[in-house]
Nucleic acid binder design. Structure first.
Lengths: 111, 111
DNA sequence: TACTTAAGTATCAAAACGATACTATTGGAG
DNA sequence: CTCCAATAGTATCGTTTTGATACTTAAGTA
């Protein structure tokens, strides 16, 4: 895993930079499993995030082609976000994390 | 995935808090796939990290029972870090991330 | 005219992070 | 006896990220 078979360096740092932001996994999870969301819906879904940060992290995800942004020319404004095909490709990784947590809950440490 | 079948809230925020630090995924990956490492070896393996941050993130991971720390009473000091059983349980998630990247490389966007 | 709503910016304070220097320890060199 | 090497840290301070709050924009409505 440190190298793949073709002797490329392991992509881990690149991957972690793309999804490692403080809120990126939460945003991606919602868009991947729940589908398209408006800006305000994401804000409600992640109440702890600030508007500033949500905007910034979405821009980062958009730049990395994990999330797509569609603006409707309406007033009041309407902007929809959704996971791209690339982004949806992360679904199995999220599922693994989920089942890791579930397994973990069932084997608590002895006090 | 937002809720599991028993109607618990989705653990995503908890999971992401545990592994979401800037360097935690990198540290975990090394300990999970390469096994036990000394402090200095980790530092060499992640050249961009500062000593201060490495210490801090390792302490966080230790507190969350993902990493184990063993101090040897020697001079010069020797401290070994390894992934706990819990930590190793994340291996499938890392493998999924890896194959996501590999797949992704083979379907580049049209310019 | 003023008000409403949604999706942002702008601004400043707080927290996280980075760079660098310093500490503790002790067996061996001189 | 004194000094040094090696490792895993702390301490300190400056920079970058993040958070809290207020402000902006634009078109329809009262």
């Amino acid at each position: 895993m440190q190298d793949d078979t073709s002797s490329n360096p392991c992509p881990a740092p690149l991957v972690f930079a793309m999804i490692g932001g403080k809120w990126k996994l939460s945003i991606l999870q919602i868009l991947i499993f729940d589908g398209t969301k408006r800006f305000g819906e994401l804000r409600k879904a992640i109440p702890e995030i600030t508007q500033t940060m949500l905007t910034k992290q979405l821009r980062d995800l958009e730049r990395d082609c994990l999330v797509e942004r569609v603006v409707y020319a309406e007033v009041p404004p309407k902007v929809e976000y959704s996971a791209t095909e690339d982004g949806v490709g992360l679904m199995p990784a999220f599922k693994e994390m989920h089942s890791w947590w579930e397994t973990r809950k069932r084997s608590p440490k002895a006090p």
